[in-house]
Structures are given as structure tokens and as C-alpha cells.
Design a protein around this nucleic acid. Sequence first.
DNA 1: TCATTAAGTCAAGTGTCTTGACTTATTACT
DNA 2: AGTAATAAGTCAAGACACTTGACTTAATGA
Lengths: 403, 403
Amino acid sequence: MNDSRPIRAKSGTNHEGTSAHNRRVMIDALRINGALSRADLARATRLTKQTVSNIIEELERDGLVSSQEAVRRGRGQPSTPYRLVPEGAFAIGLQIDRHVTRAVAVDLVGSVLVRDEAGLPPGGPSNGTKVILDLVAGVRSKLAGIAQQSEKRLVGLGAAMPGPFGVAGSGDDPWMMEAWQKFPLLETLTAGTGLDVSLQNDAAAAATAERMVGAAHGIDHAVCLFVGYGIGAGLILNGELYRGTNGNAGEIGMALLFADGKSTPLEHRASLASLYQHLSVDPADPGLYARINDLALRGDQSIGAWVEAAAVDLRWSIHLIETLFDPQTVILCGSAPEALVNRLIAAIGPLLPSIAERRGRTLPRLQPGMSDPWSVALGAAAGPISRAFDPRFAAILKDSLQS
Amino acid sequence: MNDSRPIRAKSGTNHEGTSAHNRRVMIDALRINGALSRADLARATRLTKQTVSNIIEELERDGLVSSQEAVRRGRGQPSTPYRLVPEGAFAIGLQIDRHVTRAVAVDLVGSVLVRDEAGLPPGGPSNGTKVILDLVAGVRSKLAGIAQQSEKRLVGLGAAMPGPFGVAGSGDDPWMMEAWQKFPLLETLTAGTGLDVSLQNDAAAAATAERMVGAAHGIDHAVCLFVGYGIGAGLILNGELYRGTNGNAGEIGMALLFADGKSTPLEHRASLASLYQHLSVDPADPGLYARINDLALRGDQSIGAWVEAAAVDLRWSIHLIETLFDPQTVILCGSAPEALVNRLIAAIGPLLPSIAERRGRTLPRLQPGMSDPWSVALGAAAGPISRAFDPRFAAILKDSLQS
DNA sequence: TCATTAAGTCAAGTGTCTTGACTTATTACT
DNA sequence: AGTAATAAGTCAAGACACTTGACTTAATGA
């Protein structure tokens, strides 16, 4: 009897799962609402005062929350608000881009404490690995210099790089970072740092950043359209980043557009890469960012044509995102100079009609997000923080409770 | 001090939540794997043998599972497999379509026990409500006739109708069921049946059906492209149906395509509605389904042109779905005649290149799903069953534990 | 001044999972 | 055959985290 095909089942849970969830819910409530008293927390989470007291006490002992001065709010005993302690946890974020790698250290509330970058030599991982590990080590030791306990409170290293992952590339496509894609990055970083390492694409990282400290803060359904060297969408669905089967969900830049009888991926038309090509400049030029920002600020003609063309495609992308994901809002972010993003946003409006047009909207259909060269690294760092502290289904299940 | 903005927080959980989750996990494991012993369940769910024993005992008392004959599997005491009891729960599904309404009664494992349909008179809800309530009542009493205890074990009424929901329609768009959209359907059905009523769009219902008894069974990331009068995508993400902010996620039929200088929604080009228009036939004709099937079987020329054109758009839709959702598989289903769906699938291939093309795939990129006029009603009925018995995050939280 | 209101604590109680020893039933080896 | 090994499943006590209800504390308002 060959009855040995593996049994598939979801994992069960127990007291630990309950407790882990409730701790995360507390932290999440404090993150969203700023500072809350135990009584407030009990009402908001539907737990009893006693339970909240116990958990808060424990979190305070762990250095994750601390009390503020008591506040008098009418009759009754004054309440003691609690807030997150920024120094309660740290994470390191690493962005691996085409010509540069950036690392940041952030704290529990998402403030960037240390940042550093290094040029990535050509040759892919064989030349770049050491640069990256040195960069991370540098940021890590600088963090240790300004925050005692940081090593003990480091929850992980989040890495971000352009996707898609694990796809058999066409080899001759210069838009893909072929060599890095094939490289066992997770294993190398784990071995090189001893940290808990995770990996996401840059659009997902941008979305993670927006959710922790940006326009998606406290929003459970948002899509971040990320315009960088390529284009991607970071998906916040049901309050969690959605990764898809292989971490490639949201790779809208790979969507083929048909025009003039030929098909072109979106990101060949509307990304920074296409702008660089349009301007015939070298993407590896370190002064490029400032120059583009300057051109955009001056309303330069050479950029104007690209902006107009890109806006058409981005307008359609937003329409498509609204149609397929039905989010509360779409956030336009990127690793593009801010002046350029502003021009893009201006050129994109008005949006196409879609199911997002409904009475009673509270959020705008399109909002600007971060367009800071460091936002991807920040989002990469936000990944481990989120994994460690945000409420999520997986955190309840027994197989996730070893940490 | 105006500190009274509402506090936002996720709900905590307690023992009840743990227990509810573990019960659901057991049922899910039995649904996916067929029949499992207590020891198997303990290993698969990572719970202890004792816990599994207690839960199984309770589920057996509740009539949801039952033991089968012991099986000898090598050394050791023989194991006693348990399976789901079909008669353990029932649900009623209701499809409201343009010219017809269908209702089915299903059991815990998704078998259709009763089915009935009725024509929907023009005039929208004012004329249709009574027809619908009578249809549901009829199915319900027929179910009571063949399954004792059915009333006690009825977990809800699931309704499905074309989306999108709550969108300010353009009034003159005959493709939207304006009147029904504005009608307080949930309230009317709840009042008229006394059941727990839920509502989803027809593509979501089709996906729910595929997940319970179809091609998405046991798959956690799948998208069902539903070709009916309109076109929609039902999204199974992380093992749950994703609804979006307003239940409109996946409304791909509303995606605008640009060609020949004008924009057209996808579903004006590739849905059954477009076929009916292409053939100049009356969609309300009751014999239409059979006639189309016949034409498709005969390889009729008039259908061939539409199939070729529609296949182009559907091929692109599948590409887009793969790109944005990164699912394990895409399932093509519909309320179209099977012969037509088969011709469509044949015409769609080969698929466009996408991130779904990767080594080590186990599932095909595109699979045929149900193309049965009753599949939407079945999916509608599967909704309440899934809500009541499938493991999901929301079922753990305190505010969902009143039932 | 004192009733009222609300925050927060105390201590016992409850529900659900866990632990470890034990029983039962079968196969495999001597 | 007889016995050791193996695996399923049970028993009873234990541990853990949330709940309950009474109590304490500290403010407001009449």
C-alpha cells in the first residue's frame, strides 16, 4: 500500500500562539495609535483589563514599551499611557541595487539610526559579496556604538533587491540582475552575519516601509507602485505584505503592453531605466540622481517628453491595480528623485475611471509615498521588525513559535 | 482635550480562539487528505496526540467526522482513519444572474443535493425578490425532505451576483445590474430566510467552488479567471478568498484596454456578453446555452472568429494575473458552455512568457475549471461552509467568536 | 463632603493544550 | 510459538494564559 504521499495540513496552535498574537496586537495598537492606556488597550483589543495588564507588564520588562505621565481625562483614576520604546528592537536593512548597495539600521518605530552605502563593482556576487558584508558589518558596529543592547535586540537582517526571483531569465536581458538572482544570497548573508535573514523585492520593501512609517501606516489594503530602475508593486493585503507563491507578486513591470504591433514590458517604457535610455546617460554615474532632480526641477524639456509618456503608462497601471486589488489607496513611491516623482504625479492626474471611484471615500485614490534613495533599505529593515512584531496569521501557528 | 478619535486595533484572542482554530485545522486536513488517523492528524497539525483525540472526539459527537474501519499499516496498533461526514453541515447557495436565478443546497463536502432555478422577471429587485425568496424556500424544504437535521445544520446562505459592488455606475451601462447593486440584498435575504447571509461576486464564488471541490482544492495561491456574462477573477491568496476593500478585488473585466485609439473594458471584448452581441442573439433566450454549446461543438465559423479574438485578450489576462499575483496556477472557469470553454482553452495556448515560467513547476500554468451553469451557485453555497469550517485568521480573533 | 466614575490590581477560577506513563494491537525476528 | 519492537491511542495530572468579580485608588462633579 503506497499510502505515503505527504499529508498536507495547516498547523495548529496553543497557549503560546495565543500569547504571541496578543503581544503583537498590543504592539500594533501602540504603533498605530501612538500611546494608549491599559484600559484603552483592553477595549480596543477586546481583551480583559487583567490580561492587558499582564502583557503590558511583560512588554515593559522586555523593554518594548514604557509608561508616560498619567493623564487626567475627566472623572475616574487618571490613566497611564504606554508607548513603544524605540530602542526596544533594531533591524538592519540592506538594499542591493545595480550599481550600489545601501544599508541602514532602524529601531522599533522605524527611525533610521545609521546609514551607509557602497558602490557595487561589476562582476556580480563574486566581487560584490565582500562589499556587502563589509557594509553590513560597518552599519552594525556603528549601531552598537550609539545604542547599547543593540546586538541583543537585533531581530534580523532584511535584504531587498530587484525581482523577479527564481525566473529562468533570457540571459541577454540587461534589465535583470541575472547573476545576483542565481546567487544563494540568503545563505551567504546568514553565514556572514549570523542574523536571521529575509529577502524581498524592492517594491515589496518600499511597501513595507510605507506601512511602518509612511502613507500606508495603519492601512490594511494598500498597493505601493514603486518606480525605480524597474517598476513593481508592493502589495499590502489584509494588513500583511503579500508575496505570492515565489515572492514575485506585484511584478507589474513585467506586464506586457501591446502597441504598434509589438509587445513591451511596462518597465521598458516607464521606469528610470527607460528615462536613462531616453536621456542616453550612464546609469552607473553616481551624480545622476542629483542631475535628474535638477532637470526635473527646472522643468527641462528632455525630461518632459519622458514624463508625459511614462504618465500614460503609470495612469493605466494605477487603474489596473485599483481594478484587480480594490485597495483603499494607491501609493506612488520610488527610488526616483523627488522632483521627478512630483512631476510624474502631476502628469498622471486625472486618474482613469475605475471601481475605486465611489462615494464616501476617505483616502485619496493616489497618494505620494517616499521617494528617497534610502526608502528601499528602510523597507528592507522594516521587514524583520514587521515579522517579529506585527500581528499575522503565521505567527500564531505552532511551527512559527520556535523563536 | 479632543482625544476621542476612535482607537484602531486588531482583536486579541483567547482559549476559544485557539480551540476554534484547531477544530478548523482538523476539518481542513481531513478535507484535503481524505481520511486521516488521529496520529496522522497529530503529526500534520503539530498538535499532541491527546489534543487531537479530544478534538476528534468532540467533532464526532457533533456529527462532523466519523471513523472508518481500522487499517493495518505495518507494525504497531492499527490506525483508525476519520473522514468528514457529508451530512455534518449544509449551506444554501444562491446565484442572481441577469435573467435567471439559481439555488443549490450543498453538504459539508460540497456535494450538491438540491438544485433549482427560476427566471428573473425584468424590473430588478421589486419583481425579483419574491421569486428569489420562493426559490430559496423551495430548495430549503427539499433539502429538509432528504436530509434530516438539515435545518439544524444549515450554516448559512451564500449569495453571488455579478460585481462590482457599490460603484456609482454610469446609469446607461447595460452591462451592470444597477438595480440589484443598489438594493439592500443582504438585509432582504436575512429578513426573508432568518439565515446568516453573505454576498460575493460570481468570480469569487467560482473560485470558492474550485477551492472546495475543484482544481484549487488544497492549493493556497490560485486565481480563477471566470468567463461568464462578464469577466472576473476569483482570488485565492494565502488559502483564503481575497475580497479587497469593498469586495471588488479581481474585477478584471473592468480593466480598460487601449486599442485603435479608444479604451474598452476587457469584458466588452471577451465575455459571453460580447459573444451574444457578436452573434446578435438575445441573452435572455433560455435555449441559448445549449445552442452555443452546439455551435461550439460543430466548430461553427461564427463562433470561431469570436473565440480567436477573445483568446487574445484572455491570454493577456492570464499573463497579467500571473505577473501580479504570482499564483501556483490559473484556473479558467466560467458559466459558459463546456465546448466553448474547451475551444477557448485550445485557442489561448501557448501562453505568453511570464514569471510563472520557472523550472520545477508541479502545476500547469493554466488549468480548466468548472464550466457548469451551476458552478456559481455551488460556489455561493461553498462560501458559508468555508467561513464556518476553514482555518482563517479572522476566525481566531475574539470578535468573530460569538457564533 | 460624598456619590460617581474610571483605571487598575488581586486572587481564585476556567478552559485548552501538554506531558509522561501506560495500554492495546500488530508485525518482525529468533 | 514466543518475544521484542513498533505504533496508535488513552489516562491523569500539570502548566499556561485568559477570565471573573471583588477590591483599591484617584479623580470629578453636585
